[in-house]
Amino acid sequence: TDCSIVSFLARLGCSSCLDYFTTQGLTTIYQIEHYSMDDLASLKIPEQFRHAIWKGILDHRQLHEF
Rank of each mutant, 00 (worst) to 15 (best):
H64D: 12
S42P: 04
A41Q: 14
I5P: 00
I32K: 01
Q24M: 08
E33R: 10
S36H: 05
K44N: 12
I57Q: 02
T1C: 09
A41P: 01
W54G: 04
E33C: 10
D19V: 07
Y20G: 03
I29S: 04
T23A: 12
E65P: 07
H34Q: 10
F66P: 15
H60N: 13
Q31F: 02
I45C: 03
F49V: 06
L9R: 01
S16V: 07
S4V: 02
C3G: 08
S36N: 15
Q24C: 10
E33W: 10
T1A: 08
S42L: 14
Y20K: 12
I57R: 02
D38L: 10
R11M: 06
G13H: 04
C14E: 03
C3F: 13
T27Y: 07
R11C: 05
L26Q: 03
D38Q: 12
S36A: 09
R50P: 01
D39E: 10
S7F: 07
Y35R: 02
K44C: 09
Y30F: 06
L63P: 14
Y35S: 03
M37G: 04
L40R: 00
F8M: 11
D59Y: 09
I29A: 04
V6W: 08
L63V: 10
D19E: 13
S15G: 09
C17Y: 03
W54Q: 05
L18I: 11
R11F: 03
D38I: 08
I53M: 03
Q31W: 01
H34I: 03
H64A: 14
C17N: 03
F49Y: 14
Q24D: 05
P46E: 05
R61V: 08
Y35V: 06
Q62F: 06
L58I: 14
I5G: 01
R11N: 07
P46D: 03
Q24P: 04
H51S: 15
R50S: 06
L43D: 02
L26V: 09
H64L: 10
T1F: 11
C3M: 14
Q48T: 12
I53L: 06
L58D: 13
V6E: 08
I53N: 01
Y20N: 12
S7D: 09
L18H: 05
G13P: 00
A41K: 15
S15N: 11
E33G: 08
S16Y: 05
R50Q: 08
H34P: 04
Y35N: 03
I45S: 00
L58T: 14
E47Q: 14
G25L: 02
D2A: 05
A10S: 06
I5C: 01
V6T: 15
M37E: 13
D59G: 12
L9N: 01
E65G: 15
Q48P: 14
I5M: 12
H64I: 09
C3A: 06
L26M: 06
F66K: 04
V6N: 11
C14T: 05
S15P: 07
W54T: 06
A10F: 04
H60M: 13
Q48F: 06
C17K: 02
P46V: 00
S15I: 10
F66Y: 15
T28C: 04
H64S: 15
T28A: 08
S7P: 06
H64V: 13
F8W: 12
H51P: 11
C14P: 01
F21K: 00
L18N: 10
S4K: 08
H51Y: 08
S16N: 10
L9P: 00
H64F: 08
I5N: 00
V6D: 13
T1P: 02
G56V: 02
C3P: 10
I29H: 02
Q62C: 10
C14H: 05
C3H: 07
H64W: 08
E65A: 14
I53S: 00
V6H: 09
D38T: 11
I57K: 02
Q48I: 09
S4D: 09
H51T: 14
Q48G: 12
R50T: 09
K55D: 08
H51E: 15
I29P: 03
M37S: 07
S7I: 04
L63Q: 13
T27L: 07
A41R: 11
L40A: 00
F49N: 09
I57H: 01
A52Q: 14
Q31S: 07
T1Q: 11
R50A: 07
K55R: 09
F21C: 00
R50C: 09
I32Q: 00
I32D: 01
L63C: 14
Q24H: 13
G25V: 01
L9A: 00
R61D: 05
L9H: 00
L40Y: 03
L26T: 03
L12F: 05
D2C: 04
T1R: 04
C3N: 12
F21I: 01
F21Q: 00
R50L: 11
L26E: 02
F49H: 14
A41G: 10
L18M: 14
P46R: 02
G25K: 11
V6I: 11
L18W: 04
D59I: 07
E65W: 06
T23Q: 14
L40Q: 01
I29N: 01
Y20P: 03
T23Y: 06
T28E: 12
F8L: 09
T1L: 13
F49K: 12
Q31V: 01
L12W: 08
S42C: 09
C17V: 08
S36M: 06
K44Y: 07
S7L: 05
C17G: 02
T22N: 08
D39Q: 11
S4T: 10
L18A: 14
D39P: 01
K44E: 14
Q62G: 12
I32M: 04
I5D: 00
D19S: 15
A41H: 07
L26R: 02
D19R: 13
F8D: 00
T28L: 07
H34T: 07
K44G: 15
K55A: 08
H64Y: 07
T28P: 01
G56C: 02
S42H: 13
K55T: 07
T22V: 11
S16P: 14
I29W: 09
Q24L: 07
Q48S: 11
Q31A: 06
S15E: 08
D38P: 06
Q31P: 01
S7T: 13
G13M: 04
G56M: 02
S16E: 11
I32T: 02
L18T: 14
F21M: 02
L18C: 15
D2Y: 04
I45D: 00
H34C: 05
H51Q: 15
Q24K: 13
K55S: 09
E33V: 13
I32F: 04
G13Q: 10
D38A: 14
Y30G: 14
G25H: 06
S4W: 04
I5F: 03
C17R: 01
Y30H: 15
V6Y: 06
Q62L: 10
Q31Y: 01
L40N: 01
S42A: 13
T1K: 05
D19L: 07
C17L: 07
G25E: 08
L43T: 03
L63M: 15
F21T: 00
T23P: 07
L9F: 02
I29Y: 10
S7Q: 08
S7C: 12
Q62N: 09
T23C: 11
V6M: 13
Q24V: 10
D39S: 05
S4G: 06
L40H: 01
L58N: 10
D39R: 04
I45V: 12
G13E: 08
D39F: 02
A41M: 07
Q48A: 12
S7G: 10
C3S: 13
G25C: 05
T28I: 04
Q24G: 07
S42Y: 08
I53E: 01
E47R: 09
C14A: 13
M37L: 13
R11D: 07
L12R: 06
A52T: 11
L63Y: 11
R11S: 08
G56S: 05
Q62E: 15
A41L: 09
G13K: 13
D19T: 14
R11I: 05
I5W: 00
D38V: 15
D19K: 12
S4N: 07
F49M: 13
S16R: 07
K55I: 04
I53A: 00
Q48R: 13
C3Y: 14
W54C: 03
P46Y: 00
S15K: 11
M37V: 13
I5A: 00
K44A: 11
K44S: 13
F49T: 05
G13A: 06
H60Q: 12
D19A: 10
S16D: 13
L58P: 03
G13S: 08
Y20R: 10
I53T: 01
E33K: 06
Q24W: 05
H60F: 14
R61N: 10
L63D: 15
R11V: 04
I5T: 02
E47C: 08
H51N: 15
G25F: 02
F8P: 00
T27G: 05
Y20Q: 07
A52Y: 06
S7M: 06
G56H: 03
T28R: 09
L43M: 06
I32V: 11
L40S: 01
T27D: 09
W54Y: 14
G25R: 06
G13D: 15
K55P: 01
A10D: 05
D19M: 07
T28Q: 13
A52C: 13
L40G: 00
T22W: 06
Q31I: 01
Q62Y: 07
L40M: 05
D39C: 05
H60S: 08
K44P: 04
E47W: 07
F49S: 12
P46I: 00
Q62V: 09
R11K: 12
R50W: 05
I57C: 06
M37F: 14
D2I: 02
F21P: 00
